[in-house]
Design a protein around this nucleic acid. Structure first.
Length: 110
DNA sequence: TACTTGACAAAAG
DNA sequence: CCTTTTGCCAAGT
């Protein structure tokens, strides 16, 4: 689709995140060619809330592996989903975050 | 219609 | 090592 804006692309990428994996806002932003638009990534997900069936935003965390947006999800849903996918969460942070990290730049080809 | 806020990141001090 | 500043753009007030 032409006219795809940054946040539209973000949703597309997030929707392609494989289960059991997580990525960061910066990785997505970089994949789209704007490493400084990381804020828009989170904002895109914020607007995308309401249809999580297409946008597994729980698989997107900040650079520290911290569940920054967990407050925006249902209470404890984010951690629950991540744990369900085989990830380990502690103190609102993904353990072995680097191990389960998925970079769109690697799996996808721009 | 204009200003402020916001799921972040990376660089500089 | 930790704190502060800048970039980005859309949506809410």
């Amino acid at each position: 689709m032409d006219k795809s804006t940054f946040y539209e692309d973000v949703l597309q990428v997030v929707a392609q995140i494989p289960p059991g994996k997580i990525t960061t806002y910066g990785a997505i932003a970089r994949y789209l060619g704007s490493g400084k638009s990381s804020r828009m990534v989170g904002y895109a997900l914020h607007t995308c809330i309401g249809f999580p069936d297409k946008i597994p935003a729980h698989r997107v965390v900040n650079r520290n592996g911290l569940l920054t947006g967990k407050n925006n999800f249902a209470d404890g849903e984010m951690e629950n989903l991540l744990q369900k996918e085989g990830l380990e969460i502690e103190n609102n942070q993904v353990k072995n975050f680097k191990t389960h990290f998925w970079d769109p730049n690697i799996d996808l080809v721009l």
